[in-house]
């Protein structure tokens, strides 16, 4: 086909879709989170003493940190889905979360009696924690991906990783309301690992499904 014929064809439908990726991503996030909630509430549900224990800062941060990570990473994923900013400004701010996790871990290490450290670190719920974070993140990740596909990420794997980080943030915040492991020796490690797994999955999926 001649290029000028193609141009004629394309010029026949000039009007660009309006509204955009951002609005769809927020809608997708809402739907994905509702699905995650529908999975979470009947199977796990928040711990009975949640409102009480959450008043302790060391318990509150395990919900607050991932809850803040969600929107920040989502914003970065949306920027990354724009062709000119594959690695958006502000992406370095994400180091704040591993830094906080490390700080919490070191604090807990220093304040926990040596004999109690291993018990707190291993906890009793790793086999629930990791799968739960991944499963709860999945619907959010899929819903956000559907919106990001409308974008034009020039580094699809990075965009997918940011989406994974966002989904993991929201999913982990939700899961943390169930989890009664309140030592950072546990959650700074295992939550981080769960978030890392979802982020890696997002990167792989992005490399495959966010190409255009």
């Amino acid at each position: 086909m001649k290029t000028e014929d193609l141009i004629s064809q394309l010029a026949g439908e000039p009007v660009a879709a309006q509204g955009g990726v951002e609005r769809r991503a927020v809608t997708g996030l809402g739907i994905g989170f509702l699905i995650a909630l529908a999975l979470f509430l009947p199977v796990l549900g928040p711990r009975p003493d949640f409102l009480e224990v959450v008043q302790r800062p060391i318990v509150a941060v395990k919900t607050i940190l991932p809850l803040l990570l969600g929107p920040v990473a989502l914003l970065l994923a949306l920027r990354s889905a724009r062709p000119t900013t594959p690695a958006p400004a502000g992406i370095g701010a994400l180091w704040l979360w591993p830094a906080m996790a490390l700080a919490l871990f070191l604090y807990a290490f220093a304040t926990t009696a040596p004999g109690a450290r291993a018990v707190a670190f291993l906890g009793h719920s790793i086999p629930i924690c990791l799968p739960a974070i991944v499963v709860l993140a999945a619907p959010i990740l899929i819903a956000v991906f559907r919106a990001l596909k409308d974008g034009a990420p020039t580094r699809p794997a990075l965009c997918g990783a940011l989406a994974g980080l966002a989904a993991a943030g929201f999913a982990t915040a939700l899961y943390s309301t169930f989890c009664n492991e309140d030592s950072p020796l546990f959650y700074a490690v295992w939550y981080s690992l769960g978030i890392g797994i979802v982020t890696a999955a997002g990167a792989v999926a992005g490399g495959r499904y966010l190409r255009w």
Partner: peptide, 15 residues
């Protein structure tokens, strides 16, 4: 390739 790029411009012009 030029035509693929043109179609990509068209398909992603809302971005």
């Amino acid at each position: 390739i030029v035509q693929e790029v043109l179609m990509a411009i068209h398909g992603k012009r809302h971005t």
